[in-house]
């Protein structure tokens, strides 16, 4: 089961893992207020401790750029059964990464890294390291990817600061080596020239 939303937040904070500006809300008024506070465009997505794949059930609505669309989006998501609440978050663009962790039956906590959204799964282009590890090891994880050129402004894409990505990996490895969990998914992590943000969190216990 996925950890409660607030507990996930606390854990991320403890390990300096920065998420995109988000609010966890339960009613329409709060949803609109959150969207206003963040500034359009925003993303709405359901949160349920039991739901691992929310896109499969239409639980994510992106590119909401006005209050009318926000209301519609809220109504649509709110009608899905069994949800704990709705996450309103800033819509950001950039290069997508996946960062994850699991308990390997032989080696214990292991951190995974991949770049490039759905392509990660298509090409199985990921690297692993046993947690915890330092920045040098984290940089070697990036270097190991076949898609590593994506980080260097490939075809007009953003130039990503590798040190920032490495720090995220190091912090994830600390969390993975010190906390109880079964699997962790930060997918996507979105990076632009200036910064990078975890946009979706699943910590499964």
């Amino acid at each position: 089961m996925i950890l409660e939303y607030t507990k996930q937040e606390q854990l991320l904070k403890k390990y300096n893992l920065k998420t995109v500006l988000s609010f966890f809300i339960k009613n329409k008024k709060d949803a609109l207020q959150a969207a206003n506070k963040i500034g359009y465009p925003v993303v709405f997505k359901i949160f349920s401790q039991n739901c691992l794949h929310r896109t499969d059930i239409g639980g994510v609505i992106t590119k909401i750029d006005n209050a009318k669309k926000a209301k519609e989006a809220f109504d649509k998501l709110n009608s899905i059964k069994g949800i704990d609440g709705i996450i309103v978050q800033k819509q950001i663009d950039g290069l997508e990464f996946i960062v994850g962790a699991k308990q390997d039956s032989v080696f214990g906590p292991v951190v995974m890294f991949g770049a490039g959204g759905v392509l990660v799964e298509l090409f199985n282009d990921v690297s692993f390291r046993l947690a915890p590890f330092n920045r040098r090891v984290a940089l070697s994880m990036i270097d190991e990817l076949r898609s590593k050129k994506l980080l260097d402004g490939f075809r007009g894409g953003p130039n990503i600061k590798k040190e920032a990505v490495a720090d995220l990996l190091v912090n994830t490895s600390l969390l993975a080596s010190k906390e109880n969990f079964k699997e962790i998914d930060f997918n996507p992590v979105i990076a632009n020239e200036k910064d990078l943000f975890i946009c979706d969190v699943k910590i499964i216990q």
């Binding site: 996946i98 962790a101 699991k102 390997d104 039956s105 080696f107 995974m112 990921v126 998914d185």
Partner: peptide, 19 residues
């Protein structure tokens, strides 16, 4: 999860050797 499905046992073993 994604991490689970992408992390075959051998991949992790090989990564540990590299590390």
């Amino acid at each position: 999860s994604h991490t689970g499905s992408l992390a075959g046992e051998y991949r992790v073993f090989s990564s540990a050797l590299r590390q």
